[in-house]
């Protein structure tokens, strides 16, 4: 499969390890991934608050760039906020051709035209539905035997646009984790919100959202995240959330492609495990413990 890829601001900054590991994992599975050249910010949660039109023009600019390359090629978004913005604009122009015209009057200054054709899918969707579990399993060199992983989708990965999974109780991750020989820790906060930008604007309220998710993951060795915002918040506010919970939580938060890459035996320079704020050493030592046992 060939894909276009929209990294978004986080994957080029704080979540570089997500970008590296997802690209490497998709390539290991025999796919080609090309980054959309000259992409710009999708507008995040801010643009549509500033202006309606801006909230559509910023995603549309990137979709127009992708259509210029190939309008039939799937675009992968790995950040859930970017994903939701793209789907939202795609859906809005289907319902309202006048909006598409307005968007294009704005894009004129960039010599771009958005046709409303580009198809954006979440990385979660692509990983779960474009590759069979057999294909994934066949690539495993270092099974994650004994590692207990809690899936964590967050909100906009599956809401409000979830053509590929349930928006309340998603099930995309467990088959992948099982194909890596990991043990899945199901919990009832898998599709709960990480607090997103509330952690920037009203920190206390955001921290209690983080605490609830971490509490749900109690018993796991690590979380598997599939959105840069979720990952950052679950790691960065873990100490503050520990105070809310009244117990010290030490849960490494890895990106799903990092776990896949670990199992595929990919190198450290694509996994970048040393970048994590909550050290991943417990995950690695768990795998080392399991390795001789599995061999014996």
């Amino acid at each position: 499969m060939r894909y276009l890829f929209y990294p978004g601001c986080s994957l080029d900054g704080s979540a570089l390890e997500y970008k590296r590991s997802m690209t490497a994992v998709l390539e290991a599975l025999g796919s080609e991934v090309a980054e959309i050249p000259e992409w710009t910010c999708c507008g995040a949660s801010a643009a549509s608050v500033v202006s309606d039109l801006l909230g559509h023009v910023l995603p549309a600019r990137n979709l127009a760039l992708a259509e210029q390359i190939d309008e039939d090629m799937t675009i992968i978004a790995a950040c859930s906020a970017c994903y939701a913005n793209f789907r939202r604009t795609g859906q809005a122009v289907q319902a309202d051709p006048a909006l598409l015209e307005r968007i294009n009057r704005a894009l004129e200054v960039e010599d771009l035209t958005y046709r409303g054709k580009a198809q954006v899918r979440h990385l979660m969707d692509v990983l779960a539905n474009d590759f069979s579990t057999e294909e994934i399993e066949a690539r495993v060199e270092r099974p994650l035997t004994g590692l207990v992983v809690a899936p964590y989708y967050g909100c906009q990965t599956v809401r409000p646009f979830s053509p590929y999974d349930d928006d309340q109780a998603p099930t995309s991750m467990p088959p992948i984790l099982e194909a890596l020989s990991a043990t899945v820790h199901r919990h009832n906060r898998e599709a709960s919100c990480c607090g997103t930008s509330v952690l920037m604007t009203k920190q206390e309220a955001g921290v209690s959202m983080v605490a609830e998710v971490l509490d749900g993951c109690d018993g796991a060795d690590c979380l598997a995240a599939i959105c840069p915002m979720c990952q950052l918040n679950m790691e960065g506010y873990q100490d503050r959330a520990s105070k809310v919970l009244g117990r010290q939580v030490n849960l490494p938060v890895l990106f799903l492609p990092q776990l896949m890459g670990l199992a595929f035996g990919l190198s450290d320079d694509v996994l970048m495990l040393e970048r994590h704020m909550v050290p991943v050493t417990p995950v690695l030592s768990r795998l080392q413990q399991a390795a001789p046992a599995a061999a014996g």
């Binding site: 949660s45 909100c155 906009q156 809401r159 409000p160 930008s197 509330v198 604007t201 955001g206």
Partner: peptide
Amino acid sequence: STTMWLCSLCYQCQV
């Protein structure tokens, strides 16, 4: 009110 500013856009109420 503080309500809208505390909303994290999780879309749970909407769906």
